[in-house]
C-alpha cells in the first residue's frame, strides 16, 4: 500500500507536467486543426529560458522568503513570456502561409521547426544534460505514511490553476469567444469581424506560454534539463491530448494525469523498459473503443 501511494503521487506529479504541455497541443489543434510538433521543444526552451534567467539573477541554490517569490516569479513569467513570443514567431514563419495548404504541409514544417529548435538548443547549451539549480525548497509532507515533496503539490496545483484559468478565459472573455468562434468556423468568424490572424496568434502565445511554464516546472522539479527532453515529453503530452480528446481542454488535463499515473505504475510493476509500451498500448485500446478520446465527444466545446 505504501509503495502504491508513493507511485501514485509520483505519477500525478509526472502527469501534471504532461498536462501542462498537452494544453498547448490541444489548444492549437482546437483552433486550426494543426498538430504543432514543435511544441515539445518549446517546452524544453522554457526550461532553458528559466535557467538563463536564474543565472542572470545570480541564483544558484535554494531560495527562501521574499527572494524565493520574487525570483521564481521573474523566471516563471519570463520563461512563459519568451516561449509565448517564440510560439508566435513559429506561427508567423512556419504556419501562417500554410494555413490553407493541405494539412500535411504545416505538419511537415512543424517537424522541421522541431529539429531546428532542438539543434539550436544543442548549440546554445551543449549536447549534454545541463544542471538546473535547486531553487525551490522541497520539504516533505507525510500523507498516509508516504513522504510527498512540497514541489509535487506546487506542480499539480499550478497545472490545475492553469487549466481552470484557461477554461474561464475561453468561456468568459471576448478574446476567448473569438477563439471559440474561430475554432468553429474560421470564415464565418472572419465575416463577423473577428481578426483571425490575431486570434490564432493569441492561441499560439497562450499555448507556448503554457509550455514555458511546464519547462520551468520541469527544470525546478528535476533540477536538470537537456536539449532533447522535449521530444519524449512532447510525444507523451501529445498522446495525453489525444487520449483525453484532442481539442478538449479538460481532456488534455485528464489525459496528462492518466498517462503520468500509468507510466509510474507500469515502471513499478513491469519495469522501466515497459513503461512506454504500456502507455501506448492503453492509448491504442482507448482509441479503438473511443476514437475521439476520453472526453472527446463534446465537439462544441472545442477550445
Amino acid at each position: 500500500m505504501h509503495e502504491f501511494l508513493a507511485q501514485l503521487f509520483n505519477g500525478i506529479a509526472l502527469g501534471g507536467i504532461y498536462a501542462l504541455i498537452a494544453l498547448g497541443y490541444t489548444m492549437v489543434y482546437g483552433i486550426i486543426g494543426l498538430i504543432n510538433f514543435a511544441h515539445g521543444d518549446v517546452y524544453t526552451l522554457g526550461s532553458f529560458f528559466a535557467l538563463t534567467i536564474f543565472t542572470a539573477l545570480g541564483v544558484s541554490g535554494e531560495l527562501h522568503g521574499v527572494a524565493l517569490i520574487v525570483d521564481v516569479a521573474i523566471a516563471l513569467i519570463g520563461a512563459a513570456l519568451l516561449c509565448g513570443i517564440v510560439g508566435v514567431l513559429i506561427e508567423r514563419l512556419a504556419y501562417r502561409r500554410l494555413r490553407n495548404a493541405p494539412r500535411l504541409a504545416p505538419l511537415i514544417t512543424a517537424i522541421g521547426i522541431s529539429f531546428i529548435l532542438e539543434n539550436a538548443m544543442q548549440i546554445w547549451k551543449g549536447p549534454a544534460p545541463v544542471p538546473f539549480p535547486a531553487v525551490v525548497p522541497n520539504p516533505s509532507i507525510v500523507i498516509a505514511g508516504v513522504a510527498v515533496g512540497a514541489q509535487q503539490f506546487l506542480l499539480v496545483g499550478l497545472a490545475v490553476v492553469m487549466m481552470v484559468a484557461l477554461q474561464l478565459f475561453i468561456h468568459n472573455t471576448r478574446l476567448g469567444r473569438a477563439m471559440r468562434a474561430t475554432a468553429e468556423d474560421r470564415d464565418a468568424a472572419q465575416l463577423m469581424g473577428i481578426n483571425i490572424n490575431k486570434t490564432i496568434m493569441l492561441t499560439f502565445l497562450i499555448g507556448s506560454a503554457l509550455a514555458g511554464v511546464a519547462g520551468f516546472v520541469s527544470g525546478v522539479y528535476y533540477q536538470s534539463t537537456w536539449f532533447f527532453n522535449g521530444f519524449g515529453a512532447g510525444l507523451k503530452a501529445f498522446t495525453a491530448a489525444v487520449l483525453g480528446g484532442i481539442g478538449n481542454i479538460a481532456g488534455a488535463m485528464l489525459g496528462g494525469f492518466v498517462i503520468g499515473i500509468i507510466e509510474s505504475f507500469a515502471t513499478w510493476k513491469f519495469g522501466g523498459q515497459w513503461s512506454n509500451v504500456t502507455v501506448f498500448a492503453i492509448l491504442i485500446l482507448v482509441l479503438v473503443f473511443r476514437p475521439s478520446g476520453l472526453l472527446g465527444e463534446a465537439v462544441y466545446e472545442r477550445a
Binding site: 509503495e3 537537456w226 519524449g232 515529453a233 510525444l235 522501466g272 513503461s275
Partner: peptide, 20 residues
Amino acid sequence: RDHLAKNTQDFKSLLLKVLA
C-alpha cells in the same frame, strides 16, 4: 535488474522500487 525506457526524464517510479 531493470532497463530504462528511452527519452524519459522521470525515473522516480523506478527509484521508488529501488528504495523498497
